Structures are given as structure tokens and as C-alpha cells.
Simulated scan of single mutants.
Amino acid sequence: MLVNQTIITDIKTIIAQSKDKAIRAVDHQRTLMYWHIGKRIFEEEQDGKERADYGTYLIKYLSEKLQPEFGSGFSIRQINLYRQLYRTFPIVHALRAQLSWTQYKLLLGVDSEEKREFYIAETIKNNWTSRQLERQVYSNLYERLLLSNDKDSVLAVAKNEKLPSDAKEIIKDPMFLEFLGLKREASYYEKDLENAIITHLQEFLLELGNGFSFVSRQKRIHLDGDEFFVDLVFYNRLLQCFVIIEIKTHKLTHQDIGQLQMYVNYYDRIEKLSHENPTIGILLCAHKNDTVVKFTLPEEQRQIIASQYKLYLPTEKQLLEEVKKELDSFEEKENFKNK
């Protein structure tokens, strides 16, 4: 008797999904347990609030009593985290079942409510692992998106309250490619960088942002007997358009911008379907001059974006300085317009 072999695949899928749900459910209950412990500790501290050192004494005392029986989960450091969990999320219903305890520990280090909301929304929407969330926090994703957007827009897109209407709402500048494992002091050919991106495609898609899927590399274009090759082609389902990436390991020139504009025009006129939006072109470059980009392209154009790549993660201080410079520059332009 013949048996439809898809039943094996289907049952394996059911088993895997059920196991995953069970693990998530157990992990969420653990997070809730830690929250309730943190709440109880905080309440006890409030009762002893006249003694300034009571909180420190209480946590040390609890660790001494609980750790021998329940293990390292009740070290002084861990109990402090449970207290911090309650202080950071004082409403228990705010704890999302889609996030693990490991992810909540990462979020406790985020220093503002808006940033935490952003990372929670992005984690749920993209089903990030703990490692992926860690990288996005440490690469200061929120601040990088703020360089070309306002806080309300960044948070609204993350929460799916609005779809991105402009490529700059999801495409970052700079892009950090530390996962490629290339040494920042060395010189690389564009082909080296492209090969490294293809090898680490999953990580590169994560860095690109929401809604990207890979289409092709070295896409051949025939133009009346001449051949050209587009480095990388992606599609973005949120923007509903092709996204072309040209890699430049040298300082960006106006010729590079013109070349990418030609590729964008080709895709708009030949590849794009009638219901799709205009093609986006990204020049991923080692160095760029924003003024050259500005005067090479028409005013108010939104199809060509120059994004600088870096082969290492910045410190938070370095990135905050960049955000401040960008905001100061924006204010100067606005003040000049209003004069």
C-alpha cells in the first residue's frame, strides 16, 4: 500500500512547531516569575525605605538564602536583574510572550522607553533571535535610523502603524558590516566585498532592514551591444520596488552616481511592473562626499541613496556624536529657511 510521503514532512513540522511553542511558553512563564519576584522585592524595599542601605542588604540576604537551593539564578546579580525587570516594566501585561528572558535582559540595558519600544516591536515583527537583537542594539540601529528620520516615524514603522513611504525610513547610513570578518585596515577590491556579502547574505539582509529579499548578483544588462553588470539586486516587499546596490571601495565620485542612475532607469523602464514603485539605488561606498551627491542628483529626488559602509561597530558615544551633528545641521538649515 502506497503512503503519501508528505505526511512525514507534515508531522515533523507539527512536532517542531509544538516544541517551539512549548519552549516559548516555558520561557515566558520564567520571565513572569522573575517579574513577580522583582515586584515582591521592590515592595519589601519600600517598607524599609527609611534605611538607605536596606535594598542592598535585602538582595544579599535573599541570595544567601535562595542560591544554595535554587542555584545560580539567584545570585546577587540575577536578583538585581529581577528587580530591574519590574522597575522597567511595572505593568505585567506589557511583557510580551514572543520575547525570551535573554532578550529582556538585553532590553534592560537600553536607556530610554522609546528605544525599548522600538527594539521590542522590531524583534516581534522580524522574529529576531537573541543574538540578532543583541547585534542590533550594539550597532545602535535606533540611532542610525534617527540620522535621517524623526522619532515618531521610526517608532511608527517599527510598530507597523505605518508603511515606509521613503527608502530612507528603513535604509541605514552608515551600514555596519563587521559580520563580514574583513579587516578595516586592509584594502579590498569590490569583488572581495561582494563575495563576502553573498557568503554572509542572511546577516546582510538583517543589516539592510525590513522586507528585503535577494534577487541576483552581477545582473547582466545589454544596451545596444554594450554589456553592464549590476553588483547586487534585491526586492523590498514593504516599498514594493527593486533595490539595486552598487559597491564602491573607493571614495564616491559623480561618475559612480551616474552609473547607478543608469541602472535604476533601466530597471524602471524594463523590469518594473506597472503596480510597482520606482526602483531604489544604493551606492554602498567606503567614503562619500554628501555635497557631491547633492549636486550630482536632482533636488528632492528619492531614488538614489549613498550609504557609507564600515567594517566595525562604533561605540555608542561615536554614534551619538554623529546624531547630534546631523540634528545640529538640520536645525541650521531650518533656521536659514525661516529667515
Results as ranks from 00 to 15, higher is better:
D152Q: 15
A156V: 05
L155A: 08
L155R: 10
R131L: 13
R131Y: 15
L145H: 02
N140S: 15
L163K: 05
L133W: 01
K151I: 10
S148H: 13
R135G: 03
N149G: 04
S148Q: 08
R135F: 00
V137D: 04
D152N: 14
E143L: 14
K159M: 15
A158W: 01
R131K: 15
K159W: 08
A158D: 04
R135V: 00
Y142A: 11
Q132K: 05
E143M: 13
E161A: 09
E134S: 03
L141W: 07
S148W: 05
K162W: 06
S139C: 12
P164M: 00
S153T: 09
L155Q: 11
R144V: 14
L155C: 12
Y138L: 11
E161G: 06
Q136L: 04
S153V: 10
L133C: 12
R131C: 12
N140L: 13
K162H: 05
S153R: 00
D152M: 11
L141G: 04
Q136W: 08
S139Y: 05
L163Q: 09
S139A: 14
L163T: 08
L145E: 07
R131A: 11
S153H: 04
K159L: 15
N140R: 14
S153D: 08
L133H: 06
V157F: 04
K151W: 09
E134K: 09
N160L: 11
D152L: 14
L163Y: 03
K151V: 14
L147S: 09
Q136A: 09
Y142H: 11
L146K: 04
K151H: 04
L145T: 01
R135N: 00
L147K: 14
A158K: 02
D150Q: 05
K162C: 06
E134W: 03
R135C: 00
R135M: 00
N160E: 12
P164E: 02
N149K: 04
D150C: 06
A156P: 15
Q136T: 01
A156G: 13
K162R: 03
L163H: 04
V157Y: 01
K159A: 13
D152F: 12
R135W: 00
S148L: 10
L141P: 09
P164H: 00
L146S: 03
